[in-house]
Every structure is written in C-alpha cells, then in structure tokens.
Computed example of a mutant assay.
Amino acid sequence: MKIKLVLILTFVTSLCFGQRWTEQQANDWYKKVQWPVGANYAPAYAINQLEMWQAETFDLKAIDKEFALAESIGMNTMRVFLHDLLYQQNATAFLQRIDEFLAVADKHHIKILFVFFDSVWNPYPELGKQRDPMPHVHNSGWVQSPGRKALEDPTQYPRLEAYVKAVTKRFANDIRILGWDVWNEPDNMTGTSYERVESPRKVDLVIALLPKVFEWVRSQKPIQPLTCGVWVLEFNGNKELKPIEKIQLDNSDIISFHNYSDETNFEQEVAFLKKYNRPILCTEYMARGNNSTFQGVLPVAKKHAVGAYNWGFVSGKSQTIYPWDSWEKKYVSEPPLWFHDIFRTDGTPYHQYEVDFIKNITSTKTTGK
C-alpha cells in the first residue's frame, strides 16, 4: 500500500511540477523531428533583441521576407532570443507579438527554438530607442538578459520568474516551437568587449539562478524540450565539467553545445556528448575565419543526426560579418572574408556555392534520430 502511495505521489508531482525528460522520452521526441537545420536569427533591421521585438520597430514584413529566404534553402528552424525587459514593458503586447512571429515562421515551415536569457555582450540593457551600430564592430549593440542590475538584485527575481512562466504558459502546447533554450552561454564574461563592467559575482549568481530557471519553465509543463548549451568544451580525451556545465547538462532534456572550430573538433565534441544518450543540437557554429564552415560541419552533423544552427542570417545592424576581434582591431570596410551571415541585406547570397550546398544537404528529408 505504501509503495502504491509513493508511486501515485510521484506521478502527481511530475504532472504538477514537470520533470526532466527521460532519455527514452527525449529520443522518442527526436525521432519525430525532421533534422533541424537553421540559423541564430535576428532580422537585419535589429541591432539586438529589444529592437527586434519592441512595438516601434517590430517588422513582420521584413521577418516574412527573410524567412522566405530561409525556407528557400531548406532551413526548417531558427534560434531566436527574447528579453525579460520586453515582458516588463508590456506583457500582453509582447506575448501577442510572439504569437504573430510564430505565425510567420509557421507559414514558412520553420520551428522556433526560443532563448529566455543571455549572458553575452552589453550588461546594461535599456528599453526604448536603441543606439546605432558602432562602425564595423561585431554585435556592437547586443544586450544581456537579465542585465547586471537585475542579476545582482534578488528582489527582481520574481519579475524574471513571471516573465519565464508567462511565456512558457502561453506557448506550452504550441507545436510551432521546437524547444526552450533557457540561458545562452550563462557564464560568459564577455572578454575584451564588456568584461571591465561585468559583475565580479556574475558566474556565482548565474550558477545559483540557472536551476531555478529550469524549474520555472518546467512548472508550466511544456510539450517542448528544455536545453542549455555548453559552449567551451576544452578537453583532451577526458573532460572534467565545470559546475555550471554540470547544471546545464544534468537539467537539459536534449543536449546542446556551441562550436566555432573545424569539423574535426566538432566531431570530437559530438562524440563526447553522445555519452548522455540524448538528442544533440549544435546551437551555434559557422565562423569562416575559424575554419568553421557549412561544407565542413553540416555533413558531420547530418552523419550523427545533430541539429545545427549557424550564427547569423541576413547581414544587418548586428554587423556579424565582422570577426570578434573587431572590438580590438580597426576595420574600415567590409572584411575580405565574412565571419558570419549568409545573405546580404538585398537578399543575394554572400556565396552562392554556400546556399547551394545548404539547399542540397537539407533536401534529403531525414528525421532527427
């Protein structure tokens, strides 16, 4: 009788609060998914998440046009960043814009992997008109979510919780969403761009908050999987995980990672992550100057049924055609080799052979597993 009661309570708890998917559940889900290939998407008109989504600048016609390009080369998914300040600004309107955005994505047969939080670039986000891009500088206006002030202030955590729960609840059963990426590069200290103004407690604060974010999302019982990508897998055969990487991997329904190296290194990381016996997505890759290319990575990803999201799509205000070193090295014109992005602002490809390759490799319909 006691055993039955424990089983019943366990079942009820999982229904009420949600639990991490089992390996079987995750793999069964992935078998039904077409091999995910897409990009990290911000429209060309937007310097950051705020300019993409705020009412004054939100442009569905531009998004529709760019998603048509994605569909034309066989892409079927996009990774898209949200922001907590947008929910604080006007929750109802923000949720409505997400719904309208998903309708455009669905029109082009593109499923969305939404990102709730992001630890990269400017730690001082502000609503309203966003600044103009710094000339020839990579991602000069991208902003963190939550910003430093919110991260250091526990009294703001209920606001962050409300944002995550409301978005998840609204779209918990929405098949237009592929999954939820709860926090992008959570322990990234932003290097030479903003490290001097970062919170010295940032990593410790994120380590404490990240498990709660997983709980917030799961409390709404979404039908979509959760993930949080490990982004610096430096190892020589035996990889000892950092505390935050353990949190990421132990809480993710599906495994995700970032890799901006060549295909050999990419395949090594895939081999390491396969031991978790869960579907794998590479949620950031493709940096031409680092020998991370479509021609090198995508065949390996397809061979191992790994989903792949390159960074950048249409060149625009994010200026990610410039390399990361543009924060230190002065550029005065378009670089001879684009770092990221696939299309020019007018919709023509940077390299026709690249889009031909993407279209060809995605033309064979394969399931995720």
Rank of each mutant, 00 (worst) to 15 (best):
L9Q: 09
V12G: 04
E23M: 07
E23N: 15
E23R: 15
Q25F: 08
W29M: 10
K31F: 06
K32C: 04
V33Y: 12
N40A: 14
E51N: 02
A55Y: 07
N76G: 10
V80L: 04
F81G: 02
F94V: 07
F94G: 10
D99T: 01
L102W: 10
I110C: 13
L113Y: 03
N122I: 10
G147K: 05
E152W: 04
Q156M: 13
P158I: 01
E161F: 07
R170Q: 10
N184R: 06
M189C: 13
T190I: 06
E198G: 03
V203M: 07
D204Y: 03
D204V: 10
I207A: 12
I207G: 11
A208M: 01
V213I: 12
V213E: 05
S219W: 10
I223H: 08
T227L: 09
N236Q: 14
I244E: 07
I247G: 15
F257Q: 11
N265D: 15
N265K: 15
C282M: 02
T283L: 02
T283R: 00
E284A: 06
Y285Q: 07
S292V: 01
S292L: 06
V297T: 10
L298E: 03
P299S: 09
K302R: 15
K317F: 03
Q319S: 11
W327I: 06
V332I: 11
D341G: 12
H351A: 12
V355G: 12
V355N: 02
K359A: 03
I361S: 09
K365G: 05
